[in-house]
Amino acid sequence: MVFSTDGEVPYKEGQSIGVVADGQDKNGKPHKLRLYSIASSALGDFGDAKTVSLCVKRLVYTNDAGEVVKGVCSNFLCDLKPGADVNITGPVGKEMLMPKDPNATIIMLATGTGIAPFRSFLWKMFFEKYEDYKFNGLAWLFLGVPTSSSLLYPEEFGKMKAKAPDNFRVDYAISREETNVAGEKMYIQTRMAEYKDELWELLKKDNTYVYMCGLKGMEKGIDEIMIPLASKEGSTG
């Protein structure tokens, strides 16, 4: 989703913006602010620094009582018509900002819409030109999704790979459709395990940065890969 800001919401790659859904909650109060990772570079999808893009998944689930529950803000956004006004605030956040080193190795681990900040990184790296920045390092993206139909931005990533084959790698983990040689479901950590030795060599470099965005549960699986590797060389964290 692309929102026009007229340049009044300047941001950096990796930050978030807040959205307040229209209407009131069941107590008659305004809905709470919901933060979304920005999915566009600082220049925006049209290159004029006057828009901000989000990657939004409609949240609908059935609770323990058998009731269908809809996420307030995600459904508000997904039901919007082109040209509608939206209350946004921000930007906020600094934890996901890109490293300044153009020769860095940047390993990006994403599940689902957690791809958003990494799309912003990759646009800056491969789709845009700057006088003071040209990416010459390695950007390696691992993206985990349940089905191939839920893959996000595959065409864009294909163009990036064709444009910079030595600087961009992308590996998908499609959990409901793929398995490893042992027959285990292909989660993001399962895919990473196939490259664990190569990843460990990259992690030992001073200018390697690792980012994670998506389901919190992915942390445990990734720890299960990296901790044994670190232990081999006498590291504990």
Rank of each mutant, 00 (worst) to 15 (best):
G90F: 06
C78P: 00
R176L: 11
L203C: 05
L33K: 15
K220N: 12
G112E: 00
F46M: 09
K232E: 15
Y11K: 02
G44P: 11
C213H: 10
T113K: 06
Q24P: 08
R191K: 14
A164W: 05
D45P: 07
N75W: 01
K205T: 07
P146H: 14
D166R: 05
D48G: 01
G114W: 00
D25Q: 11
S37R: 01
L215Y: 07
E155Q: 10
S148M: 02
S40E: 00
A84W: 03
G66Q: 05
I106A: 03
M96C: 10
K29M: 08
I225E: 05
A162V: 10
G183S: 04
D197H: 15
G90Y: 15
K232H: 06
I38K: 01
K124A: 02
K205F: 00
A173I: 11
F135A: 02
F3D: 13
F118I: 10
P102W: 03
S37Y: 05
K216R: 03
I225M: 06
P10L: 07
N207L: 11
K163G: 09
P91I: 12
E184C: 02
K100R: 14
G158N: 08
Q24H: 13
P146S: 00
M192S: 03
M96D: 02
G7S: 09
D25A: 01
A84H: 04
M218V: 08
D166G: 05
S16T: 15
L35F: 12
L43G: 01
T190W: 03
E201W: 08
Y195N: 08
M192K: 07
K100V: 13
S150E: 12
Y211A: 04
A110V: 11
D22F: 09
P30S: 10
A116R: 12
T236C: 14
Y172N: 10
F118Y: 06
G114A: 11
G234I: 07
M212F: 04
S120H: 09
L122V: 06
H31I: 12
W200E: 02
E13Y: 02
F121Y: 14
T111N: 09
I188T: 14
L203N: 10
T179R: 13
D22A: 14
G23K: 09
S37V: 02
K163L: 02
C213E: 07
S175P: 01
F121S: 12
G144I: 03
G28V: 06
T208K: 03
F142C: 08
A164K: 13
G44E: 05
M160L: 09
Y36E: 04
K12H: 13
K163R: 13
G93Q: 05
E194V: 11
F168P: 06
N136T: 12
L215Q: 14
K205M: 01
